[in-house]
């Protein structure tokens, strides 16, 4: 049994009347590469900022390595063991690349100097140049370097590859994989499904402040199915209330279902409705994401 690194219970955050996070129960096991997937404004950054003590939960609680996230003194201990790279990758303009590296490294006794040298080369970061004079992509790379080299047990990355070109994205993912194989737990938010599918082994999906999926990547691929059926007569959505069906789309005599489990019973049910043809197809994380997210949008508009 692996231990849990991040755990939250009914974590909630309101900004005035706006509920950004609505009672989140997260659990990230040690050693995993856990993706935190959601649209912009779904509550990803708010959750991450709560984890690191940058914003205060309205209610609920959470721990990282057993330390309470809502206590400043414990939050300090958390930040010694967690490397965080924010969504906003701007850094101190007035420092040079070398200065900001020296500055950051002074806070982390287990700073990985070899990785630093290596990444400076790979990312082609000019040491003497001021942060102000770096391009946006370079700044992102520098911010990531400052996170990767901290030698921390947990890496929390908020949209790490935003604004990077495909080659740089692949490099960043490669470093993530490399750190993961050293035993670092990685929790990263993203709305880039392709990169999530590539490196993550766990996926958490958040939509409008609510967790809509918490699963392993393999589980998603092995258990989620797309079922298409054609009926002799037109059918309606309410004909498909079976456990395991996540989303129903009907169009006259055809129906398209997204199922998370219980596939056999669902197929049986569809057959009972006298379907002419039934196709059970594998589905991708992208489809699951789109269905989950639009499903919730649909409810919200009712």
């Amino acid at each position: 049994m692996m231990s849990t690194v991040i755990e939250t219970v009914q974590l909630r955050k309101n900004y005035g009347n706006h509920e950004a996070v609505k009672g989140l129960n997260l659990s990230v096991p040690e050693g995993s590469v856990c993706a935190f997937l959601g649209q912009n404004g779904a509550g990803k950054s708010s959750t991450i900022k709560m984890l690191l003590g940058m914003i205060h939960p309205t209610s609920g609680s959470g721990t990282i390595f057993g330390h309470r996230i809502d206590r400043e003194s414990e939050s300090l201990l958390i930040r010694q063991r967690v490397a965080y790279v924010a969504e906003d990758k701007r850094l101190y303009d007035y420092m040079s690349v070398e200065q900001i590296i020296r500055f950051t490294r002074s806070f982390f006794p287990r700073w990985n100097a070899t990785l630093e040298k290596n990444l400076l080369q790979r990312f082609e970061l000019p040491k003497a140049r001021k942060v102000r004079q770096l391009s946006k992509g370079m700044r992102t790379k520098l911010a990531l370097l400052l996170g990767f080299c901290r030698g921390c047990e947990l890496l929390i990355l908020d949209e790490p590859t935003e604004g990077l070109d495909p080659v740089a994205i692949e490099e960043v993912l490669q470093i993530v994989v490399s750190l993961a194989s050293e035993g670092t737990t990685i929790f990263f938010s993203s709305h880039q499904i392709a990169e999530v599918e590539q490196v993550a082994d766990r996926v958490l999906m958040i939509d409008r402040g609510l967790l809509v999926l918490d699963s392993t990547m393999d589980q998603v691929k092995e258990e989620y199915r797309h079922i298409q059926a054609v009926f002799p007569e037109p059918v309606e959505e309410r004909d498909f209330r079976v456990p395991g069906i996540e989303k129903v789309r009907t169009n006259g005599r055809t129906v398209s279902l997204l199922a998370s489990h219980n596939i056999d019973s669902i197929v049986e049910h569809v057959r009972m409705l006298r379907a002419g043809s039934i196709d059970v197809l594998p589905t991708s994380l992208k489809e699951v994401f789109l269905e989950k997210v639009t499903a919730r949008s649909g409810h919200a508009s009712l």
Binding site: V33, L173, V177, S178, A180, S181, E182, V199, A200
Partner: peptide, 15 residues
């Protein structure tokens, strides 16, 4: 090795 294969293919080492 687990690590080099994971790095080369850029996939999760647990995989």
């Amino acid at each position: 090795g687990i690590r080099s294969l994971a790095e080369t293919l850029v996939i999760n080492p647990n995989t």
